[in-house]
Design a protein around this nucleic acid. Structure first.
Length: 559
RNA sequence: UGGGGUGUAGCCAAGCGGUAAGGCAGCGGGUUUUGAUCCCGUCAUGCGAAGGUUCGAAUCCUUCCACCCCAGCCA
């Protein structure tokens, strides 16, 4: 790590390195603490890579802990999905999955401890009154009239809360700190509130639930977490986090650090908004391939490695930043370019008949599965008199320069990828003047060989044997939002949804080898992009392919 | 205008008193049976602004400016 070529340490790595060197800690324990109230998204991927990555780098461990302190918003479906996403990303948590809810007895005991110390009280102010008493940024709060109850009374009232004798909102347990603190979080924060709901892990055992603030640091302490890493908006909570650690007989003293959450342009990373997209049917579920969720990206064909590389590449700092979507796309292309098998698929088929090839004759071309990775083997491509090419790869316009149109032009030559050089002899049109077929001839001896002197193919195009191919559906995706900052200002993100984010193409013609494609495993459809079989809609008789990402294409606007 | 946080290129990001790394994007060129990949070159006299300290400042000091977060019985 001291080599000149190594990546510089981010600020958290520097802190941990120092803590290890100074002996402040001898091992590193981190945790990824999602609340199971939605699916994980790209922003969580950053946190996962950070927390698990730090543990890996320094030979420590990282826990997966569900921060399930609010039964009103949480569901078992989400905990299962989150576990799957973390595993898929390639990380193993230490030991069993943890739950904040499994520490509820301990939290209750610690609440009693604070009451006994005179540091917590049951407050019967209702939500509106609490708000009023809290004051404002420039205005100190007022002390609750219940603030100075006796320990005995508080104990009795808290027991009544726990026993279900009060309705939701009737009262709460609060810490006695400082109603005049400039930090709003220290103005007698709430520790417990009443929620008469069953919990996905603890059932109906409790009707009072600890707040985030009263739970998080203590969870960390119980698990021996040394570096508790959260996002910037919790920085204001750090003094409170520390207050609990100082005032409770906790078994360890974790320290909280904050980093900037990931923002990506042209998308939203807010569970609330993503849930709204799902609930209102703007997308096809949490794993819609257009969603920035981990499950959506997986269904789209993104790989764990590409996401990990992305998170590594963007860095970790405390400055709020918005990463360009292009950077994520670069990582996906970079990984897929190296790993994806190649195949050919014609998206908008145009029939080509090769007249100097006898009807019924079948030839077989062989083509490498990957141009620079011989070990991936070869594939066979049937070739006959009738083939399909893409409509966009043929034109009758003979005035186009060779630089501007490197495809098939009437009267000229083009190379069929992995097969012959052909010449377009004439085009056939329907009564409306649309080109429906191209009549062509092949140049003998051009498979794997250059054509004779004088024949200069304009370029290389992809094709598929019309007599031996697979009919399929292809789904093309564009960004979900047409605005770079769907969230910004007071604009409604739903107003900037991109109406063209999904295009469904039917009647596409894929090469036969694609019949064995595995769901979510991307192929490169040569000259088109990366595509994977959809895990939801593909059937044995009808493959459906999702476009993972297009090939980089910077010639269109240059010529 | 209370508290907390952040300002280095179009987007990220190193830098920790010794004279602005790297990546993405862009631009120019080369190779190529994918207009992809790959390769080469190019891209901040400048670090939010203004003062100050110093032989020397993105780094230290002062003042100012801009943006983000906090008034849930959400996390």
């Amino acid at each position: 790590m001291s080599e000149a070529t190594s990546k510089p340490l981010n600020f958290l790595e520097q802190i941990i390195k120092q803590d290890l060197e100074s002996g402040k800690t001898s091992r590193v324990i981190t945790r990824f603490p999602p609340e199971p109230n939605g699916y994980l998204h790209i922003g969580h991927a950053k946190s996962i890579c950070l927390n698990f990555g730090l543990a890996q780098t320094f030979g420590g461990e990282c826990n997966l802990r569900f921060d399930d302190t609010n039964p009103a918003k949480e569901e078992l479906e989400y905990v299962e999905a989150i576990k799957e996403d973390v595993s898929w990303l390639g990380f193993d948590w230490a030991g069993d999955v943890r739950y904040a809810s499994s520490y509820f007895d301990k939290f209750y005991e610690w609440a009693l401890h604070l009451i006994n110390e005179g540091k917590a009280y049951v407050c019967h102010l209702n939500p509106e009154e609490s708000k009023e008493y809290r004051g404002w940024a420039t205005k100190p709060g007022k002390e609750s009239p219940y603030r100075n109850r006796s320990v005995e009374e508080n104990l009795a009232e808290f027991e009544k809360m726990r026993a279900g004798e009060y309705d939701e909102g009737a009262c709460s347990l609060r810490a006695k700190i400082d109603m005049a603190s400039p930090n709003m979080n220290l103005r007698d924060p709430m520790l417990y509130r009443i929620r008469k709901q069953s919990h996905h892990q603890t059932g109906d055992k409790w009707c009072i639930y600890p707040t985030y603030d009263f739970a998080h640091g203590q969870e960390d302490a119980i698990e021996g977490v040394t570096h508790s890493i959260c996002t910037l908006e919790f920085a204001d909570h750090r003094p409170l986090y520390e207050w609990f650690i100082e005032n409770l007989p906790v078994p360890a003293k974790p320290v909280q650090y904050e980093f900037a959450r990931l923002e990506l342009n042209y998308t939203v990373t807010s569970k609330r908004k993503l849930k709204q997209l799902v609930d209102e049917g703007h997308v096809d579920g949490w794993n819609d391939p257009r969603m920035p969720t981990i499950s959506g990206m997986r269904r789209r064909g993104y790989t764990p490695a590409s996401l990990r590389n992305f998170c590594e590449m963007i860095g970790v700092t405390k400055s709020g930043s918005t990463i360009d979507m292009g950077q994520l796309e670069y990582c996906v292309r970079d990984d897929l370019n190296n790993t994806a098998p190649r195949a050919m698929c014609v998206l908008n088929p145009l029939k080509v008949t090769i007249t100097n090839m006898p009807e019924g004759e079948k030839q077989v071309m062989t083509q490498s599965v990957h141009p620079n990775r011989e070990e991936m083997g070869e594939r066979e491509l049937p070739f006959s008199r009738d083939i399909y090419i893409d409509r966009e790869d043929f034109t009758e316009d003979t005035t186009l320069s060779r630089k501007k149109f490197k495809r098939l032009v009437l009267g000229e030559y083009v190379r069929l990828r992995g097969a012959y050089v052909i010449k377009a002899e004439e085009s056939v049109k329907d009564e409306d003047g649309n080109i429906i077929e191209v009549i062509a001839t092949l140049v003998e001896g051009t498979v794997g060989e250059n054509p004779p002197e004088g024949i200069k193919p304009r370029g290389v195009i992809h094709w598929v044997d019309a007599n031996d191919c697979v009919d399929c559906e292809v789904r093309l995706y564009d960004r979900l939002f047409s605005d770079a900052a769907p969230d910004a200002g007071d604009k409604n993100f739903l107003d900037v949804l991109n109406p063209e984010s999904l295009k469904i193409l039917n009647g596409c013609k894929a090469e036969k080898s694609l019949l064995t494609a595995e769901a979510e495993k991307a192929y490169q459809f040569e000259r088109e992009g990366y595509f994977c079989l959809d895990s939801k809609y593909a059937t044995a008789v009808k493959p459906v392919f999702n476009q993972t990402i297009g090939l980089k294409d910077n010639w269109a606007n240059k010529v």
